[in-house]
Write a protein that binds this DNA or RNA. Structure first.
Ligand SMILES: Nc1ccn([C@H]2C[C@H](O)[C@@H](COP(=O)(O)OP(=O)(O)OP(=O)(O)O)O2)c(=O)n1
Length: 651
DNA sequence: ACCGGAGAT
DNA sequence: GGATCTCCGGT
């Protein structure tokens, strides 16, 4: 529809129009100049652990969960270590490898912990991915502050999409007078002038080969600028470079990026060259790029749907799919799905980058392996309580980090027994505190157990999953100091109470005595910055900044807050403290300026999370549905319909 | 609204 | 394989 169909009879004309520029400024998915980026952290969990433990970059490391690996860093991959192999096999392949087990929760515990001494037992603990979620949030924060005008969407714990159209438009117009002149008053259908002769800076990006080139000429390729589509991609490449550098500078993580005209291509692009690199897919490189992929590598084609297509076509190669006409595809796929496939393999994808950085649901789950399978309600309830502790901690942590209060309205419990699965869902009632969650969860578990699993029975238990969703924003008393204080007081150790200061700056606070320990300078956290930027082929071993290794409560709070560190160590109290008039916390005088700067930054961040909320409609109020009592039956091998459960992809 | 399932990281 | 998440279809 909005394809740049205009022919270019006259050399001085671009293929694009002023209308396209306007679309660009609005991040329209129909804009042919649209620029989307996908940024994916390299071996994310492994990088998190390397940072936490201060492991040098070049040392092989993998993250394990029970006996299996869930993340492998690049040095280890060179030795043949991959995800999906066991820790034992990894040791054989790479004896020097450092294996780090994920943190775990234990029944009765208040928080997750890393077991430095021994490996956690799968039957006695449940893994926690919270440390990675926390780092993931920090990355989002860096993205936001680096590229405030981009649309940001969290696509996974270690990957994000950005629609850079708007900020690119701004920069494009600012740097190109020829576009600025007629931009107002000019007819939208009028073709743009071609960009002046220039040499594009691709900021070290790999340029995916176009037809004719047999290999990526890589970082140094120089090429004539043909039109504005390349210009905007180059600007996008610069932004992604800045994003990646910022993540490295501020957090010590390397990541890879893809820059293209839509999400699908951006995602393929980010995976093109992996450790710490970025790739650009120009328009004329799209089909050549796609053609060298198996279409089963494209998102949504990796599962049943992809397999079904392979069965009909007899090939996984994308070029073998191109000859199929839309009717051909429709002959064995639902119309919408056929259309989606037809467009996707040609590089067309108008999926919007949806502004969302918070998850819609939180779930806590645990699988059990023989021989230790829970076989009594007591065991089930025990793990249920661990799930509640986990989820509640995450809700509170998120609140502390974003300064936005969100509470789930719906809870779902899934129980997998011997071939029989049951799930029950109901509104969370009785308040929104931890107890409400616990009682709701217990009700659900009782309901599931009472219903039972039919002939097969639910016992022994193979897996339990607790899910909360339908998050709703609570009033935060935007900018209200009282509310802020209230929230902090609820999640932090009780601060020395004093009436809120009304003075413009701060009031004097007597130094607390022995009981309320105050640590002054436990945070030498002066940004000891790293020199060399992330580079895939950099042989320079650089050790990222080490950070806090403490569990849950370590996340937020001002850097100097004496209440931040839950570890009560013996520190000499300063002569006096000032009471911050923003949060009422006692702050050493010399740290007050920095402390209040922290407030400014935190408020900015809060504004972002709140603004995002406004852009997403709140779900409707849940009706007081019943806790479910009616039972269905089989779920296991239910093959009632051929090709059932086929998801229709809409275009 | 509730439940089951696909697909992805 | 385990732990998460998101989105969709049928009822
Ligand atoms: N089946 C999977 C796939 C991934 N992950 C987690 C661990 C990874 O660290 C993180 C990101 O997944 P990626 O597929 O992006 O893989 P990596 O980040 O580990 O490596 P790469 O550098 O190839 O992206 O998600 C997981 O738990 N289970």
């Amino acid at each position: 529809m909005a394809e740049p169909t205009a022919p270019s009879p006259t050399p001085p004309s671009s293929r694009f129009t002023y209308r396209h520029l306007t679309q660009l400024s609005k991040s329209s998915v129909d804009c042919p100049l649209r620029v989307v980026a996908h940024v994916d952290l390299d071996a994310f969990y492994a990088q998190c652990e390397m940072k936490r433990l201060g492991v040098p970059r070049e040392e092989p490391l993998a993250v394990q969960q029970w006996a299996n690996l869930i993340a492998v860093n690049y040095p280890a991959r060179e030795k043949g270590v991959t995800r999906h192999i066991t820790a034992v096999e990894a040791k054989k392949l790479c004896p020097e490898i450092r294996l780090v087990h994920v943190a775990v929760w234990t029944p009765g515990s208040t928080e997750w912990r890393y077991n430095d001494s021994s490996l956690p037992s799968m039957s006695l603990s449940k893994s926690s991915l919270d440390p990675y979620r926390a780092e993931s949030k920090k990355i989002l924060t860096v993205f936001r502050s680096t590229c405030p005008d981009a649309i940001l969407e969290k696509a996974g714990i270690d990957e994000n999409f950005l629609d850079l159209s708007k900020p690119i438009y701004e920069q494009l117009v600012a740097e190109n007078e020829e576009l600025r002149e007629q931009i107002v008053g000019g007819k939208g259908s009028e073709l743009l002038p071609l960009p002046g002769k220039r040499r594009l800076d691709w900021y070290g990006s790999h340029l995916v080969a176009t037809e004719g080139e047999d290999a990526e000429t890589g970082v140094e390729e120089v090429e004539e600028v043909l039109d504005w589509d390349d210009v905007v991609l180059a600007i996008g490449a610069g932004m992604v470079k800045r994003l990646r550098d910022a993540v490295w500078e501020e957090l010590g993580y390397t990541c890879s990026g893809g820059i293209a005209s839509n999400k699908m291509l951006a995602k393929l692009g980010s995976a093109f060259k992996k450790p710490s690199q970025q790739s650009v897919v120009r328009a004329r490189a799209v089909q050549p790029f796609l053609n060298r992929h198996k279409y089963t590598k494209i998102r949504n084609l990796g599962g049943k749907l992809g397999t079904q297509i392979v069965d009909h076509v007899g090939s996984q190669l994308l070029p073998d799919l191109l000859p199929l006409t839309l009717p051909d595809l429709t002959s064995f796929l639902p119309d919408d799905t056929a259309t989606w496939v037809y467009n996707t393999i040609r590089g067309h994808d108008r999926t919007p980058v949806t502004p969302r950085t918070a998850t819609k649901s939180m779930l806590s789950a645990k699988s059990f392996r023989p021989p230790s399978l829970p076989s009594t309600p007591q065991h089930a309830f025990q793990w249920l309580h661990v799930f509640i502790a986990d989820i509640w901690a995450r809700i509170e942590d998120e609140e502390a980090f974003t300064q936005v209060v969100r509470r789930p309205r719906v809870m779902t419990l899934a129980f997998l027994g011997r071939g029989a699965q049951r799930s029950r869902q109901m509104p969370i009632v009785g308040g929104e505190g931890r107890d409400a969650l616990r009682r709701t969860a217990e009700t659900l578990l009782r309901a599931v157990l009472e219903e039972g699993g039919g002939r097969m029975g639910l016992w022994p238990c193979m897996r339990m999953t607790l899910d909360v969703s339908g998050f709703e924003d609570r009033e935060t008393g935007s900018g209200n100091i009282g509310d802020f204080f209230t929230r902090k007081a609820a999640s932090l150790p009780p601060p020395p109470l004093l009436p809120a200061s009304t003075s413009a700056s701060a009031s004097i606070l007597p130094t607390p005595s022995s009981s309320e320990e105050v640590e002054t300078d436990l945070h030498p956290s002066k940004r000891q910055r790293i020199t060399s930027p992330p580079a895939a082929d950099s042989s320079t071993p650089v050790i990222p900044p080490s950070t806090s290794t403490s569990p849950s409560p370590a996340q937020p709070a001002p850097p100097q807050s004496p209440l931040t560190n839950s570890n009560p160590s013996t520190t000499t109290p300063p002569p006096s403290l000032l009471l911050c008039n923003l949060c009422n916390l006692p702050i050493p005088p010399h740290e007050l300026p920095e402390h209040q700067d922290w407030h400014v930054a935190k408020d900015l961040e809060k504004a972002w999370w709140e603004e995002e909320r406004r852009q997403t409609p709140q779900p409707a109020q849940p009706g007081q549905a019943a806790a479910g009592k009616k039972g269905k039956k089989k779920v296991a091998g239910g093959r009632e319909k051929r090709e059932k459960g086929q998801t229709v992809l809409r275009f």
